[in-house]
Amino acid sequence: MTMGNRKRLKRESIIQTALQLFSVNGFHKTTIPDIAQKLGMSVGNLYNYFSSKDILAQEIIKYTSEVLGEKIREVNMLDVSAEEKIHKIVEIYFTMAKEKPEMIEYFLRVYLSNREVFSSGCEGMICVSEFITEIMIFFDDAVASGELRNQDFFSAFGLFMGYLGGMVFLKGEGVLPKEIETYIDDISRNIYNALKA
């Protein structure tokens, strides 16, 4: 294993561990020494990877956006209808919420709730640009093919992502009576019906 590869894996494991601790103990209560201790590495060494907790927080959101963006990009490449793509995107999001809840929770509870942490270095959409770009491409294709109604980006984006985020939030609060994946079909249909041409 090369040095570069080892560093990359170490970096990812720090992100994974931090994500877990943030979701269990909360962002503010989790400290760098907590993360280092859990990983069995020295605090000094961890600072070699991320020079501050804020930087770490920003890198995590970029990482999340990349993972999500990569998956939606695969959907965008498929030669299927916009209705099917919506279904697949909802599926990706909810599956992630179930299998890696810390990731989606991080987005909702840390990124959206602690804007001051992200004000310098993560302005606007920089740190989520991969994810946003793929959603834009999905919308653009679907309007070009005549499947979705043309409108302002944010009115469509808010309906789509606000809805999904809301459901994951309810899940996180423990108020959803059923497993989240059981809602995929209905929610996909609702989104499609709301946005279709």
């Binding site: 302005e123 606007g124 959409m125 920089i126 640009s129 991969e130 946003i132 770009t133 834009m136 491409i137 653009d140």
Partner: peptide
């Protein structure tokens, strides 16, 4: 390419 344009746009737009 559209993806390149949207990425660059998203970043540039983030700054006031």
């Amino acid at each position: 390419p559209r993806r390149a344009y949207l990425t660059a746009t998203g970043i540039a737009k983030s700054f006031k």
